[in-house]
């Protein structure tokens, strides 16, 4: 049967996007005429599966600062690094090299020593990025403050020194949050709670006590005494994508959708090479459905191990107990239990 996925539910409109605000750090938009499940997939994928680069390995040569090595290493990992055109960088696990190379890693080094009397602050701008990398911006520490300092790594007093080299790798936030391209993804639908997906707690009056969200202006408030529409489904989703600085916000969305498509392509590929059912082990089974069998006619007494009724691994099976009859007068011949 021919049908158009995008034209169902009496909707003559396909998915639509309306951008309400955007700059180089965030983008707020409304996504309408898609299903909640798709909008949520997009949110999940932007939050956790868009690849970026982040420092993953730190080799500490000298650290006489007050912070422990692992503490500094953790801080270094959290520094956002420029991850635009991340496609040019391989995952280390997929790379042809032995350990790491310029195609899959970016090397950053840091060497700072305080010689003055004042406390010295070491910033992300002090990281020196190695030249062996796919292009000349990937792996640069993201610096957005007006002074051009970047994130603070540590402070040094007179005589303290820090010298280390870092290996930045490509990764996703599902593995570690330092790889997240977003600092937050706002996601809201149905700001007037017409669908009753929320049950608002209140003292006297929910409408009074719960301030309307700013997205409430985009939708009609429910009319006085409006009956609850139990067929209604959410169709308008308010996203607020806030970049951590390593990828531009609109590219996060783009990359997010691309990531969904990559997953789908992988699955289409995986489905193609499916060589039928693998019944090699007593694993999970598809329910036997309508074919009779043990499936739905079974009343729940049987186990999947061919153990119909009564017989246990201890050799029970309708036989009498060691005492001939149980104390309850059951001779055991019934075989039921």
């Amino acid at each position: 049967m021919e049908y158009d996925t995008m034209m169902m539910d009496g909707e003559s409109l396909g998915p639509s996007v309306k951008i309400s605000a955007a700059d180089d750090a965030y983008v707020n938009f409304q996504l309408s005429n898609v299903d909640l499940s798709f909008a949520n997939s997009l949110r999940r994928v932007m939050l956790a599966e868009v690849p970026t680069v982040a420092i993953d390995l730190v080799e500490v040569e000298i650290n006489t600062s007050v912070l422990a090595d692992e503490f500094v290493a953790h801080r270094l990992g959290l520094i956002p690094l420029d991850s635009r055109e991340i496609d040019q960088l391989n995952y280390t696990r997929d790379c042809d090299c032995d350990q790491s190379c310029g195609k899959c890693t970016v090397v950053l080094t840091l060497h700072a020593k305080c010689t003055g009397d004042d406390v010295m602050k070491v910033y992300a701008r002090d990281l020196i990025v190695g030249i062996d990398r796919p292009n000349n911006h990937i792996g640069n520490p993201v610096i957005t403050d007006p002074d051009g300092l970047g994130s603070l790594i540590c402070k040094l007093r007179k005589g303290q020194e820090i010298k280390l080299s870092c290996i930045a790798k490509k990764g996703i936030a599902k593995e570690h949050a330092k790889w997240s391209p977003t600092s937050a993804v706002g996601f809201e639908y149905d700001p007037h709670n017409k669908l009753h997906h929320l049950d608002l707690w209140y003292e006297a009056d929910a409408a009074e006590e719960w301030p309307a969200s700013k997205n409430a202006n985009f939708e009609e408030p429910p009319a006085e005494g409006e009956p609850f529409d139990y067929d209604a489904v959410p169709s308008k989703f308010y996203f607020e994508v806030e970049s951590a600085g390593n990828i531009e916000p609109d590219n996060i969305i783009h990359e997010g959708i691309k990531e969904i498509q990559k997953k789908l392509a992988g699955l289409i590929h995986g489905l193609g090479e499916n060589d039928g059912m693998d019944a090699g082990y007593d694993g999970p089974r598809s329910p036997d459905g309508m074919d009779g069998g043990a499936g739905w006619q079974d009343q729940g007494f049987t186990t999947p191990y061919g153990n119909t009724g009564g017989t246990t691994a201890w050799g029970g099976g309708g036989a009498a107990t060691a005492y001939g009859t149980t104390p309850y007068g059951n001779s055991g011949s019934g075989g039921g239990w």
């Binding site: 996925t5 396909g14 996007v17 951008i19 898609v34 609109d250 783009h254 959708i257």
Partner: peptide
Amino acid sequence: LCDVVTDEFWTKR
């Protein structure tokens, strides 16, 4: 569907 949403987003952007 992803293609449609991408196109729509970039046009609007």
